[in-house]
């Protein structure tokens, strides 16, 4: 099972990935964007309700990157519709315009989500030497019950959850990054982390 050290590795992976995502986003807008990850948690299959406590808004915009290979699951950027609209405003330089402009929102949020999920998953696969395949990302909008994929609910799985804060000059928006692993994948992930630790740190230093 995942111990504190494993969790530290995952925190590091997500922080590096999100940092790379922020670098890319900064090349796309005039304003400086910084991304912070104040909280990283693992939720087991019996803790879905606790996971859902992090989502108190009514409507959400979700960008999903499905992945397969050595690990199977879904990587998601989840934002409340209100925060998503604010983020889109920052990118197109028009305030309060994007809420009713669905096509525009889908396009821009898809790219932002794609940048962040790609950066995190790319970092994860590189650091842990994972062979992963990807499917073209998708955009969804709806109530919070669409956050956890049905496949994950059907098969006891684990969720790696990271809260993300986008700071774009004068305003701040909040988002949530989550990777939903199937149970087997999660076990494989733990094995990969242990291998990573063994390769990079001596047994003395791990004590």
């Amino acid at each position: 099972m995942l111990n504190e050290l494993h969790l530290e590795v995952l925190k590091e992976v997500i922080n590096i990935g999100v940092g790379k995502g922020a670098e890319v986003l900064n090349t796309m807008v005039q304003s400086h964007i910084s991304l912070e990850v104040p909280e990283v948690k693992i939720f087991g299959s019996d803790e879905y309700s606790r996971f859902q406590e992090h989502f108190s808004e009514t409507d959400y915009s979700i960008i999903t990157l499905p992945f397969n290979g050595e690990l199977n699951g879904f990587s998601k950027l989840i934002m409340s519709s209100e925060h998503a609209a604010k983020l889109v405003d920052a990118f197109i330089g028009k305030h309060g315009a994007s809420i009713e402009m669905d096509s525009l929102r889908v396009d821009i949020l898809s790219e932002i989500g794609n940048i962040i999920t790609n950066a995190v998953m790319g970092t994860l696969s590189n650091m842990l030497s994972l062979e992963l395949g990807y499917i073209v990302p998708s955009y969804e909008m709806g109530r919070k019950d669409i956050i956890i994929p049905k496949e994950i609910i059907a098969n006891a799985s684990a969720i790696l959850y990271a809260q993300t804060h986008f700071k774009i000059e004068e305003f701040e928006t909040k988002g949530n990054f989550a990777i939903f692993f199937t149970l087997k994948s999660f076990e494989a992930l733990v094995t990969k982390i242990q291998l990573f630790l063994g390769e990079n740190f001596s047994s003395e230093s791990l004590k």
Partner: peptide, 16 residues
């Protein structure tokens, strides 16, 4: 570039 080593799909929105 990551695409050529099997990286995840990349999206460029029309607006940006």
């Amino acid at each position: 570039e990551p695409i050529f080593t099997g990286g995840p799909p990349v999206i460029f929105s029309g607006k940006l």
